[in-house]
Design a protein around this nucleic acid. Structure first.
Length: 188
DNA sequence: TAAAAGATCCCCT
DNA sequence: GGGGATCTTTTAT
């Protein structure tokens, strides 16, 4: 179990995104899941990104130093979490879209609903935030030694991740910037 | 000042 | 497979 260094996130999101597959994200040291689906979002050159058009109150964290968490509120009721990448001032982030639960299934189920099957606990960007209790309070926090961390437990990223267009966007749909662990691609 | 869309999810049929 | 929930941000008048 090696926690990822801050420099791990310095390349652009498009580079970091596939490398995050099969890493493990841990909240409060007890609730964790393996990352099986991500999407890359860039800044000035990506019309689907929150950072397109420059920094605002909402997206400011995306323009900050890498290795921090960008959490945003969407659809009036959901939180989604990104890992900020790239050099400071450069807008770049990886949206965490799905996890395979690893530990802390009980607290996850407590927050997600007692009737959830294991797979339903973290199989969506807002679901995993609810499972890990990630909210706007966590926007801008550093990952390294933080409440939410990402570690490498020795499982390598897939050699050939499944690539598709990003979900839920209407612009730049020709860019296949969604990456999925092949075994995790069952929902396709 | 108003309207619409949005990096979603859940329940119903 | 379809629609409602629910509210912030962005864009249009």
């Amino acid at each position: 179990m090696v926690e990822l260094s801050t420099s791990y996130f310095e390349p652009r999101a498009l580079t970091v995104a596939p490398q995050l597959l099969n890493k493990v994200i841990i909240a409060d040291g007890a609730v964790s899941g393996r990352i099986i689906e991500v999407e890359a979002y860039e800044g000035a050159d990506d019309p689907a990104s929150h950072g397109f058009g420059g920094p605002t109150d909402r997206n400011r964290v995306m323009f900050g130093p890498s290795g921090h968490l960008y959490v945003y509120f969407v659809y009036g009721m959901h939180w989604c979490a990104n890992v900020v990448c790239g050099e400071p001032e450069v807008c770049s982030a990886v949206l965490i879209r799905a996890l395979e639960p690893v530990s802390g299934l009980d607290p996850m189920r407590m927050r997600r609903g007692e009737d959830r099957r294991d797979r339903e606990l973290c199989d969506g960007p807002a679901k995993l935030c609810q499972a890990l209790n990630i909210t706007g309070v966590d926007n801008g926090i550093a990952l390294r030694d933080g409440r939410v961390r990402i570690v490498d437990d020795g499982v390598a990223p897939p050699l050939s991740p499944v690539r598709t267009p990003r979900v839920g966007i209407s612009k730049a749909t020709e860019r296949r910037w969604r990456f999925i662990v092949p075994d995790g691609a069952r929902e396709l």
